[in-house]
Design a protein around this nucleic acid. Sequence first.
DNA 1: CTGAAAGCGCTAACAG
DNA 2: CTGTTAGCGCTTTCAG
Lengths: 339, 339
Amino acid sequence: MSTKPTMKEVAAAAGVSVMTVSRAFRSDASISDDTRERIRNVADELGYVFDAVASNLRSQRSGFVAVTIPSINNANFADTVAALSGRLDPAGLQVLLGRTNYDMAEEERLIGQLLRRQPEALVITGGHHTERARRMMQNAAIPVIETWDLPQEPLGNVVGFSNADAMRVMVAHLSARGYRKIAFIGGDSSFDTRGADRRRGFVTAMQDRGLDPSRLITVGRPPVSMREGAAAMAILLDTLPDTEAVIAVADPAAFGALTECHRRGIRVPDDIAIAGFGNFEISGVSVPALTTIDPFPARMGEQAGELIAGLLRGKVTKNGPTLIEIEPQLVARASTGAG
Amino acid sequence: MSTKPTMKEVAAAAGVSVMTVSRAFRSDASISDDTRERIRNVADELGYVFDAVASNLRSQRSGFVAVTIPSINNANFADTVAALSGRLDPAGLQVLLGRTNYDMAEEERLIGQLLRRQPEALVITGGHHTERARRMMQNAAIPVIETWDLPQEPLGNVVGFSNADAMRVMVAHLSARGYRKIAFIGGDSSFDTRGADRRRGFVTAMQDRGLDPSRLITVGRPPVSMREGAAAMAILLDTLPDTEAVIAVADPAAFGALTECHRRGIRVPDDIAIAGFGNFEISGVSVPALTTIDPFPARMGEQAGELIAGLLRGKVTKNGPTLIEIEPQLVARASTGAG
DNA sequence: CTGAAAGCGCTAACAG
DNA sequence: CTGTTAGCGCTTTCAG
């Protein structure tokens, strides 16, 4: 009673072999319903808890899918993880989540930690990694899926979109509505690689249209907070007051910028237009509602989960890595005079 | 090359025993620095990855702390997890995270899944659980910590606060500022137990002051979204237009309520006051800023982590369960005429 | 500081 | 449908 019971004890109590107990705890094993029922009851009474660690070692299957995200507290990444998790659950796979804090060095450390747990697949947010991290992932001999990006040199499978292209779409939208003096608010690009990609996309898109791409406000380390968005807007209004429209690297920053306008009595979109990225809930609720881009986070999670489930089922059917591109969608709302 | 190298291969390549390789990968083991360095280099060249599964089985230590939260996408819970994780990291403990979706049945299922992985401790959000979940946790023979609540019958350790008392503080604040017709916006209380506790605290506090506690607007399942907060405010303004102040079960709902007022041209706090809970970032950024209550999520995570690290280190020093009560703090801002 | 033997709790592989 | 045997990769334990 003091020590935790094992299958051996359960087997003894039920009058069967250990192997039969093992079968009673798996779904696919061939065992009579009666026996299974009886063994499970005995196990329950003994307070037996299946030991997944021992099972994993012997079967060489951990049931883990390792997942890295920059931040736990981000609705976009959370939606991807929730959808991924929902798709993996029926396949008996559990998500082992780690956060990189938008830091490639931390990502490297984390990947090392996660791989020790023998995950069966690895889903990582982003397509930029340290050399060592790349090597670790390639050596791991498990399916790797990069998401939220369209990497130049994919490690394996990809379920993502082009952050740069998304900004192109947004610049096109603003340009079509007559805005020409457009600014960009973003974080320190040496950290947030997706943010850096968006900034690059903004600059390129502006140049392509013969517009001035130099209205760039850089705040601190990502994620850019609402408060930092407000601070950036304050700087923008003080230093470049003729700016006609602002694109923020993500919706929270865009909302922060909006609040700064409210505080100053500047009308949005009449005096200045504001747009974000991510289609966070706040973009649809704020007054005015914010124009944004929906990258379909849940869809990415589902597709990644689907891909993993398939790859792990048909272990041999490898016809090279899969690339699934998601098309982010412009959501035009009142903050840019639309909707 | 095709199969993953084990310690055996590393040992052979380094010309030492498997045991010595094992020691080279642990921090406390007695081994010369030279040998360790050499072995690690050999291991790196072979692409060796330490197998935590085998290690866990033999040592009977998983290095996992299982943690359940209602939702991944919630800044409050995320802050608790981040702080907890930060405190456990130096102790070599990894967080194994699961989400309950605000559902006690799902929590029960999840706890069962998590316990199979042999976690060394269990941190759960909330103090309400199914009977079966309680039994599983008690049988697990590991430290259990309930957070974000002050349970009537704790399972073991507690690092939390009284949700009901927090509402008492908020009602006192509004009452002191002269508001008497106060409403409460919350979710379906059969799911969100903390929300239900807050509602109960609201009703009791109102009654204690001889105020009418019947202005209760119930929206859908938790978490109550910004949109639902706005919808609830719309109902409130339509059906009980003489309401002077509104308390929302959490800040996002409070912000939603605020936006509904903006849309209708109702001034906050001049026409109606609004307060929330959680001290989410938005409460400090919105215009006007929202009065709220800070439950110090990070502090709870730190304390829980500290407690676990201590319990697992001094395995025998059990002087009964620990209760750490956090005192939530009122943050008075413009939305209730303060600040 | 280093090594040899034994075994953690379960399941693959085979037999019946 | 059920049982026997062996062993997953590491670390505990004991010796040197």
